[in-house]
């Protein structure tokens, strides 16, 4: 009993499974939803690079769903 109490909230394999699923599914869902993200990234880099000096690797594109709202987030750090 005492042991179970500790096991419950900590790293049970079920909690691990859930966590691993959360991470992989967030990734797969984004890819399924927006298979164009890679192309979009390329195009954006091309356009921005014409005007500003940027590091292509640092560009971060993310499609996020937050309950009812979907957000396309594009981060472009300027050198």
């Amino acid at each position: 009993m005492f042991f179970e109490f500790f096991k419950k909230n900590k790293n049970t394999s079920a909690q691990k499974a859930k966590e691993r699923l959360r991470i992989i599914l967030a990734h797969e869902r984004a890819e399924n939803k927006a298979p164009f993200l890679d192309d979009l990234r390329k195009d954006i880099i091309e356009v921005i690079a014409k005007y500003i000096d940027i590091d292509p690797k640092s560009i971060n594109i993310n499609l996020q769903k937050d309950q009812s709202m979907e957000v396309l987030e594009i981060n472009i750090p300027i050198k």
Partner: peptide, 13 residues
Amino acid sequence: KGDMMSKDDVLQV
């Protein structure tokens, strides 16, 4: 035992 996801775990995912 915490070795299988519960109904609620699966539903949350």
